[in-house]
Structures are given as C-alpha cells and as structure tokens.
C-alpha cells in the first residue's frame, strides 16, 4: 500500500472522524441542550417570532 492509498483511505475516514470530534465538542459545550432556545436564534426584537416577512407578491406593485 503506497503513501497515496494511505492518504486516500485516511481522507475518507477523516470526515466522519472530525465530525465525531466536533460532535463531542458540541455536546460538552451544551450545544445539544436547550433546543427551544436554539430554534429562536434567527429571531430577535427587530424581527420577532410571529412576524412574517417578505410578503410582497399579489398585494401591490412596488412600482407605485
């Protein structure tokens, strides 16, 4: 088995390997806890939950 074959097999194993390490890191940081809070991250006071955005079609021409 030459160096390149080792590199290739190592490469194929690297993605799931790194993913497992990252998963462990995330778990230790508490990223997998509090899913309700994480789900709200796209929202804030300016654009809160319950407020739809981007509703522009079939209402009125933006040309006016």
């Amino acid at each position: 088995m030459n160096v390149l074959a080792i590199l290739m097999i190592g490469g194929v194993l690297a993605v799931p390997g790194v993913a497992l390490v990252a998963l462990r890191w995330a778990s230790h940081r508490g990223e997998l806890n509090l899913p309700e809070r994480a789900a709200l991250l796209p929202f804030d006071e300016e654009e809160p939950v319950g407020r739809a955005t981007d509703q522009i079609l079939n209402r009125q021409s933006a040309e006016s």
């Binding site: 993913a19 497992l20 899913p35 309700e36 994480a38 319950g50 739809a52 955005t53």
Partner: peptide, 24 residues
C-alpha cells in the same frame, strides 16, 4: 422560519440531520 415567522418544527431533528450527513 424567517419568512413565515415561526421557529423550525424540531430543532433536535435538524441537529440529527446535520450529524448524520456529516457521518454518512
């Protein structure tokens, strides 16, 4: 979620989707 103004249905499912993509 931003357009309809509603959080994602299940955050756990979204996390499961990400990690299974990374693994497989």
């Amino acid at each position: 979620p931003k357009v309809i103004g509603r959080p994602i249905h299940s955050y756990y499912l979204s996390v499961l989707g990400f990690w299974s993509l990374a693994l497989f």
